[in-house]
Structure formats: structure tokens, C-alpha cells
Computed example of a mutant assay.
Amino acid sequence: MTGKVLMLQAVLALGACAMPQTVVRTPDTRPSLAVAGAPAGAVLFVDGQSAGAASAYDGHPNVLLVEPGSHEVDVRDGAGNVLHRQKVFVESELKTIQVH
């Protein structure tokens, strides 16, 4: 019985030893959009889909990551009225939408 107890203790002791872990993070290189000058309560739409409050993507530091290509960008007020509409083409850069 003592042999089984010693073996169990040895297994538990080895199990407690953890191997070193390595974490590799790859930066996201997708293009991004930022919105400047959007009024309070404005909502950002990209290709007809709501992305949330336009003020959340002011570029300091938050931006909206998008796929490369052409996108239809709308900034709408709380009632859904279009305040600004722009078609943009992005490849790998940050594109800032200026709402007038």
C-alpha cells in the first residue's frame, strides 16, 4: 500500500509542474474606419449594418475594423435620418470619415 501512496504522490507532484507557455499575438492588419465630427447620439452604419454609436469610433483609440474593399458608410441620427453618406475604398489603412 505504501508503494501505491508513493506512486500517487509522485504523479501528483509531477502534475503540479507546469510547462512554460508561449503566447504569440499577431496584430490585426485589416483596414479600419474612424468617424470625426459625428453629433451625440449618431449611429454608424457600414454596408447597411449598424456598427453602434459613431462616437465609439473616433479614432482615439477606437476604430472599426473592416474588410478591404468598397464600403457604403452612413452616419444617422437617432431617428434614422441620414446625416452623412459616403462610399469609401480601403485597402490597408485607416480611413477617417468627416461628418459635416
Rank of each mutant, 00 (worst) to 15 (best):
A34K: 06
V88H: 03
C17V: 12
N62H: 06
G3Q: 02
Q21C: 15
Q21F: 15
S32H: 05
G80I: 07
A79S: 09
A53K: 01
V99K: 03
M19E: 11
C17F: 12
V66R: 02
K4A: 14
D28V: 12
A16Y: 03
Q21K: 14
S92M: 05
G59M: 05
T26L: 11
G37E: 00
L65E: 15
H71N: 01
Q98N: 07
P31M: 01
D28W: 11
V11L: 13
K87I: 15
D74W: 01
A56E: 02
A56S: 08
D74P: 00
R76D: 01
N81V: 07
L94N: 13
G78K: 07
Q9R: 14
L94A: 11
P20G: 14
L33E: 01
V11G: 13
T22S: 08
R30K: 05
A38E: 10
V23N: 14
A56D: 06
A16R: 05
A16M: 07
L94E: 14
P61H: 01
G59S: 04
G80K: 10
V63Y: 13
K95F: 12
T96F: 09
E67Y: 12
L94S: 11
G69I: 08
G52L: 01
S50Q: 03
Q98R: 09
V99E: 04
V35D: 09
S92T: 09
A38H: 08
A13D: 10
A79M: 06
K95G: 08
L33K: 02
G52D: 00
T26P: 01
L8W: 08
T96D: 11
E67D: 13
L12R: 10
L14Y: 09
D77I: 07
V23I: 14
A13W: 07
D58N: 13
R85I: 00
R25P: 08
D58Q: 07
V88A: 03
P68M: 03
M19I: 11
L83M: 13
G59E: 06
H100W: 05
P68N: 09
A18I: 09
F45D: 01
S50W: 02
V66E: 02
V99F: 05
Q49R: 14
V63G: 13
V88G: 00
P61L: 06
D58E: 10
A51H: 00
L6C: 14
A53F: 00
L94P: 12
K87F: 15
L14I: 10
Q49D: 15
A42W: 00
A56P: 05
D74E: 07
I97P: 01
L12D: 11
M19N: 11
V23E: 15
M19Q: 12
V11P: 09
I97Y: 09
S50L: 05
T22I: 08
S50F: 00
G52A: 04
R30Y: 06
L83C: 08
L8C: 12
E91V: 15
T22K: 08
R30E: 03
S32P: 05
G3W: 01
L44W: 02
A79E: 07
V75G: 03
A18W: 09
L8P: 07
S55A: 07
